[in-house]
């Protein structure tokens, strides 16, 4: 447990000192503040536009951070061999993977809190009370990002940092198009294509479960049970991907 904490703390320190992170944060804060003026250009209320734009910004910046930092950290660590200094000690490779994941999630969480703070202040500025569904939306986004971090770690264990980044983006896009894949499979007459689409649909997580933006924007009900189920689904997938990453990494020659 101590080893995991040591690796996690070092990872957190490393990511916190990464300049790319501050650039992403700055862009996110600027975009959120700019969105205050977008409401005047829209048919909808400023609060709706702000909420929609804010959540989209958080999703996009979270994705960028998860990919840049996730792939950069493990992939580059393997490529630059700094990993030798950890797994060459009495440290299990599993502890290294879990420590990396925890450190990355801590950084992401801190950034999410910062962006969310700007977001909540901005919507308060428009006179809108922060209701539970908005908080749920942010929470589910955080779960989704943890899943993306686990994905980037998984891909980093067996491929180059560039390919891992491409695969993670592909995974994210495919995950959000999961429902479409199901529809496509039903309409597909070619059995090979149908098999591929069905397999992808079953294999990939449905990332739309974490997207409750539309419901929040239109003030629709978001049942607590749905949020709990979606969060459990995300955590389960994250654990599964981390376990896979551990299996691959334990067999890898460094």
């Amino acid at each position: 447990m101590n080893t995991i904490l040591t690796v996690a703390l070092n990872t957190f320190k490393e990511t916190i000192r990464n300049k790319v992170l501050y650039n992403i944060l700055l862009v996110a804060a600027a975009a959120l503040l700019l969105s205050l003026s977008f409401g005047d250009l829209s048919l909808f209320s400023r609060a709706q536009v702000m909420t929609d734009f804010g959540l989209a910004t958080m999703s996009l910046t979270g994705l960028l951070m998860a990919i840049f930092i996730g792939v950069g950290l493990l992939g580059v660590e393997i490529a630059t061999k700094t990993v030798y200094g950890v797994v060459g000690r009495p440290v299990s490779r599993d502890a290294f993977i879990v420590g990396k994941f925890c450190g990355l999630c801590a950084t992401l969480l801190l950034n999410f809190i910062l962006i969310a703070a700007v977001f909540f202040v901005a919507i308060r500025f428009l006179g809108v009370t922060v209701k539970a569904p908005v908080v749920y939306a942010v929470l589910l986004l955080a779960v989704e990002m943890a899943l993306i971090v686990a994905t980037s770690i998984f891909f980093s264990t067996f491929t180059t940092p560039t390919l891992a980044a491409i695969f993670t983006v592909g995974f994210y896009i495919a995950g959000h198009l999961n429902d479409l894949m199901n529809i496509g499979a039903e309409q597909q007459r070619n059995p090979v294509w149908r098999f591929i689409l069905v397999s992808l649909n079953r294999l990939l997580p449905n990332l739309e479960h974490f997207n409750i933006r539309t419901r929040v924007v239109y003030d629709l009900a978001v049942p607590d049970l749905f949020v709990a189920q979606a969060a459990a689904y995300g955590i389960l997938y994250t654990v599964l991907l981390l376990l896979l990453a551990m299996v691959v990494f334990s067999r890898k020659d460094l």
């Binding site: 101590n2 080893t3 040591t6 690796v7 070092n10 320190k13 490393e14 000192r17 990464n18 630059t80 061999k81 700094t82 030798y84 200094g85 950890v86 060459g88 000690r89 009495p90 440290v91």
Partner: peptide
């Protein structure tokens, strides 16, 4: 590997750390 130290041909360090931070990290490991 407890009680065994390895030293590689080329030093591989976390460039963001200071000398004392790096040693502390290793000592904790």
């Amino acid at each position: 590997r407890g009680g065994v130290a390895f030293l590689s041909e080329q030093p591989y360090f976390y460039a963001h750390l200071t000398v004392s931070e790096m040693l502390r990290f290793t000592a904790e490991l």
